[in-house]
Structure formats: structure tokens, C-alpha cells
Amino acid sequence: MGAYRVILLVTLGVYLLLKGIGFVYGVALPSSVVSMYVFFTFLVTVLIISVTDKGALSLTTPIIEFLYKEEKKKLRKVVFVVLPFVLAFIAYAFTKPSYEEPFTLRVVHPAPPRIVNAYDRNIELEKIKNPIRELTGDAYEEAVHDGGEIYFKNCFFCHGAKLDGKGHFAKGLNPAPLPFTGKDTIAQLEESYVFWRVVKGGEGLPEESAPWMSVMPVWEESLKEEEVWKVVTFIYEYTGNEPRRWEK
């Protein structure tokens, strides 16, 4: 089997595999990731083949033969005529105005400020603790339940009755509301961080998070501080996630 055929087969195989995974799973893998994977597969295959002299020759010989061998003259003529057109078309295709919307690099979890001014005081995020966690027994259960009521009166329209980010108004939002289930979102964050996001809302996001896209309300305006802590505790409890902590 020729070296080029191996490269083609392996690359194509990986491409189909990735597409297949997306297909079977029901959610296609992002095309940017697929193209990165495929390109890398191609590269590594070329490297493996070219390690030995024989392999390297099997890669270069067809090109050399094509360029210099008398028997390939006909093919060469055809390619030399076609090639400028193909390359010109590629250049055209790359530079023609695209109708894709400009693409925004949005940071989902940006760095929080050190100090947040909320509820008429300066709060140092690294120091603040969730007061609900100090409660025990029934008092704690009750606070969590209060948090649930607050959640279902304020948050579930977007973040969903299952806390999966798929509330009945979620599909109109871009970016989509974040889910609290799974290990990607609140499980990665400290409670003080979640507190900050709730209290300051989309408008409190730094530039890199494109605050102009988020319609998360500034809850400081309509919820009391204790209520925010209750709802924060609720979303952790309901989803079975643990907030990130640095020590125990």
C-alpha cells in the first residue's frame, strides 16, 4: 500500500470516527475540534511514516517522479494547467466575503474582581463565606427549601425546572443559560464566585465575557443577601454538586 494511501485512509478513518461519535451521541462534535483532531492525525501519520529512510522515500519518490520522470509528462502537463486554477479558486474562496456572523470569543467563567461592592458595602470575595453552611439540621434543610422557593420564583424560567439550563424561556437566549447539573459549571467554582455572578448579573461581567450578551439580571436589586446565599446553596444541594474549596 502506498504511503499516501495509508495517510489518506487513516485521516479519513479518524474523521469518520469523530463524525460517527457525534452522530451516535446525538450532539455533533464542534467542527473546530474535529478539524484540529484530523489535522493532527494527518501530521502524526506523516511523521511515523517518514521516520525511516524507506518511509521518507516512499513519500518523496512519487513527487520526484511526478516532477522529473519522462513517463509522467502527460500527467504533469495536465496538473500544471489545472493547478493555477485550483489554487486561484482556493484563494478566492478564502477571501470572498463570508456571511458567517462575526465570532465572539466569550469567557464563560471570567476572573472575579477582588472586591465587589454590593449591598452597600465592599465584599472581599476571597474571604466571604456562605452563612447557610453554618446552619445544621432542620435549620439548614429549611434554608435550602427556602432557596428552592426563591429559585422557582426567579430563576427557573431560564435555568430550568431540572436546573439543566433549559427553562421554558431558554431557547431564545444567546448565549444559552448555564446548567447547574454536570461537573462543568458550579462544581468548578467556589460559592463566593457563584454569589458574585448572581448578585452582579450580566452587567457585572468583565469585558472578556461580553456582558452585553448576558441578560442575567442584577439580583442585588431584587433579592436580599441571605436569599442569594439560600438559592446558591439550593442549586448545589439539588444537583448534588460540591462547591470548590481550597482546603477542608
Binding site: 493555477p84 482556493i90 484563494a91 478566492y92 477571501t95 431564545g172 441578560v215
Partner: peptide, 26 residues
């Protein structure tokens, strides 16, 4: 949410220039 309005140009010279340039260089 925010969407984009894009005024698609009726005709643009630039991509043809690129194509031609690459054609000549090749």
C-alpha cells in the same frame, strides 16, 4: 437576543484580485 444585520455587498473586487494574484504566482 442580539443578532446581526449584514449588508451583503453587491459586488466585491477583492476576492477576484486574490484569485488572480495566486494564479499568476503559481
Amino acid at each position: 437576543s442580539w443578532a446581526y444585520l449584514y449588508l451583503k455587498p453587491g459586488y466585491s473586487f477583492k476576492p477576484y484580485a486574490w484569485g488572480l494574484g495566486v494564479f499568476i504566482i503559481t
